[in-house]
Amino acid sequence: MPEVKEFVEQWSRIWAAHDGASWPDLLHEGCVLRNPFGTVARADLPGYMANLVRGMPDHTLTATSWGETAGGVLIEWVMTGGGMEITGADRFTLRDGRATDGVAYFDPTPMITAMSPPKLPVEALAREYDAAWNAGDVDAIVARHAQDGSYHLHVAGAPVITGRETLRKAFTAALANWRELSFEPVRVRCEERGYVWESTVLGVLERPLRLGAVTVPVTGTPLRFTGVDLVTLDQDGLISAKDTYLDILAAAQNTSVSPPVRTS
């Protein structure tokens, strides 16, 4: 039927141009499209195409064959992009040249893999950040934080601070407390979007260190105490949130605590 051929041609143009705005023109009111990811309403089709383009901008979907069915059309296709290839078929029920129902059949696994963000090298990022602190390089430290990243030193009265410039001032002031300062890593526990870092803090104070209600005096002797950083990363691998916990009592008493951990 001519209307079936025209439907397939319009369907092909939409996919060739990634023209999500024209998708609803192929469907009657109330029609939904179903695929392995779920059900897409007619009004949501432009957004569905936009998300697909964002996740896999180089994708192409081309009809390899099509044929009329008793109630509409079956289109076989191949999709490429993001280093993957998928074959599938769309079955549409038609009335007056537009769809009243549509179902797509394909294995979604390759598409999920292609559209998933790459895994972050979390441990490598953690070690780079630790190296920046050991070098006392404020620029390198701040560069590892997201523009709107937050930091909270969990001592009494310490506020959450947010934003790179605020973090720069806070970290510069923190480093200025020390004549000597280094961090000895103990272990790192990595997750997909963050890590827990444990290390020993070793240093000699330049001036009294105020940690909430506790002040650690300058003695001229090396201090050794523990802490732990809980770090959350954004999708770009930058630090969106960092929470630091210290063994303040050990620092105040100038005693060593086991197991040792880190602060920044």
Results as ranks from 00 to 15, higher is better:
143 A>Y: 07
9 E>N: 13
233 L>P: 07
28 H>E: 13
213 A>D: 15
242 K>I: 00
174 A>M: 05
92 F>E: 03
139 D>N: 13
126 A>R: 02
152 H>N: 05
200 T>K: 14
18 H>M: 09
78 V>T: 12
29 E>I: 00
189 R>M: 05
58 D>K: 07
37 F>V: 12
237 G>D: 06
139 D>T: 13
67 G>E: 15
45 L>R: 11
155 V>Q: 12
199 S>N: 12
153 L>G: 01
3 E>C: 09
101 D>C: 06
29 E>F: 09
181 L>A: 02
24 P>H: 09
97 G>A: 09
230 L>W: 15
225 F>K: 07
218 V>H: 01
136 G>H: 08
217 P>A: 08
133 W>R: 10
165 E>K: 10
17 A>L: 15
262 R>I: 11
236 D>C: 03
189 R>N: 04
173 A>G: 13
241 A>T: 11
189 R>D: 05
191 E>H: 03
87 T>S: 14
207 R>F: 01
187 R>Q: 13
117 P>H: 02
260 P>M: 07
67 G>N: 14
98 R>W: 00
158 A>N: 14
241 A>Q: 10
49 M>F: 14
233 L>C: 04
127 R>C: 05
184 E>K: 10
39 T>R: 14
50 A>F: 09
10 Q>Y: 08
2 P>Y: 00
206 E>M: 08
7 F>L: 10
190 C>P: 02
1 M>E: 09
194 G>Q: 11
196 V>T: 13
19 D>A: 12
50 A>T: 13
191 E>Q: 07
205 L>G: 01
154 H>W: 04
163 G>P: 09
180 E>K: 08
165 E>W: 02
192 E>P: 01
7 F>M: 08
195 Y>P: 01
161 I>M: 11
55 G>P: 11
226 T>G: 07
218 V>R: 01
199 S>E: 11
63 A>D: 02
49 M>N: 05
109 T>D: 14
105 Y>S: 10
208 P>T: 11
250 A>D: 12
26 L>W: 08
205 L>D: 04
4 V>M: 00
76 E>P: 01
98 R>F: 00
170 A>D: 09
31 C>K: 02
65 S>H: 08
155 V>A: 14
231 V>Q: 04
127 R>P: 05
39 T>A: 04
105 Y>R: 09
121 P>D: 10
120 L>P: 12
88 G>R: 03
190 C>M: 01
191 E>W: 00
13 R>F: 03
138 V>N: 05
111 M>P: 02
82 G>R: 07
90 D>L: 08
138 V>T: 12
228 V>N: 06
211 L>V: 13
37 F>S: 12
97 G>F: 08
139 D>C: 04
63 A>T: 15
56 M>Y: 04
116 S>Y: 03
151 Y>I: 08
158 A>Q: 13
61 L>E: 04
48 Y>F: 13
59 H>P: 05
86 I>H: 07
